[in-house]
Nucleic acid binder design. Sequence first.
DNA 1: AATCGCTTCCAAAGCGCTTTGAATGCCGCG
DNA 2: CGCGGCATTCAAAGCGCTTTGGAAGCGATT
Lengths: 347, 347
Amino acid sequence: MNLREISEKLGLSQTTVSRALNGYPEVNEATRRRVKEAAIAHGYHPNQRAKSLATGRSMQIGHVIPVSIQHEMMNVVFADFIAGAGEVYGKNGYDMLMSIVSDDGEVKAYEELARKGSVDGFIVHGPTDDDPRIALLQELGIPFFVHGRSTDVKTPYNHLDVNNKRAFTRAADFLLDLGHERIALINGLERMDFAQRRRHGYETALQKRGITPDASLMRSDEMTEPFGYAAAREMLAKTRPPTAFIAASIVPALGIRRAVEECGLKIGKDVSIICFDDAISYLPNGAGEPIFTATRSSVREAGKRCAELLIDIIKQPPTRPIAELWEAELVVGNSTGPAPAVHPSKD
Amino acid sequence: MNLREISEKLGLSQTTVSRALNGYPEVNEATRRRVKEAAIAHGYHPNQRAKSLATGRSMQIGHVIPVSIQHEMMNVVFADFIAGAGEVYGKNGYDMLMSIVSDDGEVKAYEELARKGSVDGFIVHGPTDDDPRIALLQELGIPFFVHGRSTDVKTPYNHLDVNNKRAFTRAADFLLDLGHERIALINGLERMDFAQRRRHGYETALQKRGITPDASLMRSDEMTEPFGYAAAREMLAKTRPPTAFIAASIVPALGIRRAVEECGLKIGKDVSIICFDDAISYLPNGAGEPIFTATRSSVREAGKRCAELLIDIIKQPPTRPIAELWEAELVVGNSTGPAPAVHPSKD
DNA sequence: AATCGCTTCCAAAGCGCTTTGAATGCCGCG
DNA sequence: CGCGGCATTCAAAGCGCTTTGGAAGCGATT
């Protein structure tokens, strides 16, 4: 069933049928009703391929995912982000085009999708501190929106980010206020912009209290459970182990907890843990009372907002770049407590 | 840069340019080279929208994801599956169209994507025991491939599944051989076909040894870490606690481990744990030596294979349905050991 | 010299929609 | 009675590609 067939069946021109279905005002309301009913009765859906050829818009948003990023935060956090974005796409008649590419194929993927006209815009995930994708997309002249920031990119671009630095300053402050002095940082990969900002936040808080960040208490890697575990095991074996950990995600935090418990230590008493919580739906930070004290910001809400803003941008390019910075909230759970008294024998 | 422009620039017809680029034989090799070079030089990529209108194929595969499934295995396992599928799509010139919909919008999503001609086929994820999507897609007359099975659907359909029953029989046998008799099952949601098959496998193994499955040792829910934790805590508090757990995924297994450790028990000694391991890349079952003894089957490889088969089906509808059944391998880790001697006081 | 068979290329139709520009009918008004 | 204005509808062009059905050129064959 296509436009011609249905218009013939109704004894109307294709023009009128098209306009009736697309809500144009210059069509009689009685006619519109008749057309709409016929469309439903015959299960008519305008051919999207023809439609987008005619309109010049594909009604699709591209997400390019390099496989390696599978390992970093992308995998688990990503699913929630796209759930949020996808919801917004659906409401606005857009679809999500996802392209999973090898790492060296990323540039080509953006170029092709843009040049082929497969998408009307892109969401850029997980920017590094100097992300080349931003310049590439600007050159391609296609709308895009960055989830996060790329510190060293100085040309303006549309983005939304969490105030990662502030979140980690607050996390560290919280522990410092509890009397902790040896605070470990279990961070994401340093090439990720967010990880650098988080480290800066952590370092800033320590330095403000006259504590020099101890490199032996800082780790940076893919945010897996085993990474959190291994890092914590090693640090807890030191002669002067940390009394608290700050983790960049709930995933390594689970590993830290495992290590702490294996050492026969009590969480929230002997060792405190605080993490950044993306409010991931399948890995909730406890039901009701949080397992971990955490700085929290929903990545799903971020996905929604990024999608909304990108669609706005596609419809009407803004005169000046859009930028939003969200603050994470600090939620207190059972994983933190006052620093343990210094063991006499350790002096 | 479109076909007309580039053909004018070359002094050739659009026909010839099109054929040259698409590898048709009726074009002189010298001409073809000239065309290809010009295409690269000018960054020409055929407009996908026009192309698919002309060919009648969208070169897109649809994945419809209801948000609720976010919570069940989908979320974490899904990411790996689509990584595998996406790789295959890229190699074959296909793109992945992902539609995230509310639960009641699922039927509509399939219908629309099919009728609008947005996709050439679908991958169906996470079938239930009597999944209505199969009949729907058959009625829509669009190629599709099911990852898993739907036991109560009797019409044949293309699918690939892991032998879930066998995997769980083997897991239970492994524990039974070690002398365990009180073996708990921490399963996924019962409406999922795979969960039912796994339970059957577990029950079959017990019954073969004359053990009647104990309903108080069986739980079924979304496969989260907290679920595993809560279920294990409760079971371990019984007067006759289980000596072993079988978990449907590594995620609840992590929760079980947490519970066991909190109870001051030793894994692999006091309590054994065995799980189904989807070989998820971001949650690896240990590096080298597995953390958990597990029955393992890579969901990523499954994604690859499903994509390959679906593309074959689109190109050439098979005369009889394609069905593959994969066996999971049993890998032995540190989480299992002989059943502890019965405590004298417990008799 | 006429014909055939190849290779190589092309003009034009068509995919199914949107959109432009114009036509039709009808009303009220001078 | 003629005309402008409004509401409603339509024919046709165009989006950028593929594909059909030739046609041109040329050496080989009869």
